[in-house]
Structure formats: structure tokens, C-alpha cells
């Protein structure tokens, strides 16, 4: 789970889920606690699903929140 997907790709990560920034990957402090939780819960869920997904090349998984 990384914001800088190009870096993750360059170092060879295979399953990648984007996060929202460097200093706060999973919760923007300028938004409400509720929004932050929603985003974190969603993206961690995407990462968990990614772990169960068969891939044959470096893959960036889509997020909705």
C-alpha cells in the first residue's frame, strides 16, 4: 500500500494498492474521522482482496474511496 506507485513498481512490488499521500497514507487529517475511517477500511479491504487475486504481472488494484 503506497502513494508513490511508480516507486513501488520500480522496486518490484507485484500487488499494489494506492494510498492517498506520503505523510498520511490512510486518512487525510483535513477530513472528518468518519471519512478517514471509511477510506482506511475500504483500502485495506482492497489490499486484502488483492492478496487473494491471481495476477501474472505487476498490478495496481483500483480503489473507490
Amino acid at each position: 500500500m503506497a502513494n508513490l506507485i511508480p516507486i513501488a513498481k520500480t522496486v518490484g512490488a507485484n500487488r499494489m494498492v494506492p494510498t492517498i499521500s506520503i505523510p498520511y497514507p490512510l486518512g487525510d487529517p483535513s477530513t472528518s474521522e468518519e471519512e478517514q475511517w471509511k477510506l482506511r477500511y475500504h483500502r485495506v479491504g482492497v489490499a486484502l482482496n488483492a492478496l487473494t487475486t491471481d495476477i501474472n504481472e505487476q498490478t495496481v488494484f483500483d480503489v473507490e474511496v
Binding site: Y24, P25, L26, G27, P29, Q36, W37, R40, Y41, V44, G45
Partner: peptide, 10 residues
Amino acid sequence: DPNRVVPVDA
């Protein structure tokens, strides 16, 4: 909020 980096809560 360290959970923003290490999402223990989620």
C-alpha cells in the same frame, strides 16, 4: 493517528 500509517484499527 498512527493508524493512518499502520492500519491496525481496520
